[in-house]
Design a protein around this nucleic acid. Structure first.
Ligand SMILES: [Mn+2]
Ligand SMILES: [Mn+2]
Ligand SMILES: [Zn+2]
Ligand SMILES: [Zn+2]
Lengths: 146, 146
DNA sequence: ATGACGATGCAATGCTATTGCAATGTTAGC
DNA sequence: GCTAACATTGCAATAGCATTGCATCGTCAT
């Protein structure tokens, strides 16, 4: 544990406090792990990636993070919910990342595409939109041939 | 069983044969039930709506229908897969109903919006689309206030 | 100190999806 | 018609994920 770790911990700690989350040791570790991910992860991924820790505690940690607007969950059709860090302007009441999620049929990873927003959809009369969820499946940039 | 029933059965039977599905008694009943639905249904809904019948057989019937392009499945985020009849031009290789699905937060029903197509999405470089799934959640026309 | 409150760990449960296998029904060839 | 192949159905079992209950533990304010 050198000064680097301390600075990292303080940074992570502030991110938790900013979202009104009590920064426990477990939560610091989980958030640190989440920031290192390039793709959305499942509870299983988290359990495997973390040191030995209780699955249910990790589950509740993710739920807490989601409630507080620190992460959002993604139903990508694989059966296991995926989680990824939110953009900064999310909070517990409202998630503001209405971006597209991409599931790669080759590497089986789920990616947030934060710069690819879901376009406005004109619904039939008297249908009122509250949330949108767009999953695109295909081949990701890393797995693209040629 | 009057002439009405016989005509109905023959109609349903032809729809199965057109999709290359062996028209068994069970399948006739399931397809008949599906045609009467206004919303997409889960396996549970089907089990409750049908007479006493085996859940697994119903499950496999839906899977067969899906393989043959007679129904498509919808992951609406509720945890239970929903099923709805396809448009006529679907087949086993390709489902052509890239329409929006709507989940009503009030009545908890999932609807196909066959006339609301998913727009083209411009993805980042080297991402290749193979499938799209857009779920919109909100308030449906029937539950709309005022 | 101690009592309240939140966080954690462990056990148990519920629900959906999926497969194995035996029994049954159906069809085509003989 | 008989029979063997094949498809369908019914029942049992399993897997996997999500979720809750409860006891324990830690922390913090009084
Ligand atoms: Mn995302
Ligand atoms: Mn549909
Ligand atoms: Zn990939
Ligand atoms: Zn409704």
């Amino acid at each position: 544990m050198g000064p680097h770790t301390i600075e990292m911990t303080n940074d992570i700690e502030h991110r938790l406090k900013n979202k009104d989350i009590n920064p426990t040791a477990m939560r610091l570790l989980v958030l640190d792990f989440l920031t290192k991910q390039v793709a959305a992860i499942s509870l299983n991924d988290l359990e495997k990636g973390m040191g030995p820790s209780d699955r249910i505690t990790l589950y509740r940690t993710l739920k807490t993070f989601e409630e507080k607007g620190l992460v959002h969950s993604i139903e990508d059709g694989t059966g296991a919910t995926k989680y990824a860090l939110c953009e900064d302007n999310c909070d517990g009441d409202q998630h503001h990342d209405l971006h597209v999620h991409f599931y790669c049929n080759t590497c089986k990873e789920t990616f947030c595409l934060p710069n690819t927003k879901i376009p406005e959809i004109s619904l039939p009369k008297r249908f009122q939109t509250e949330e949108m969820n767009l999953i695109i499946k295909g081949i990701c940039d890393q797995c693209h041939p040629g």
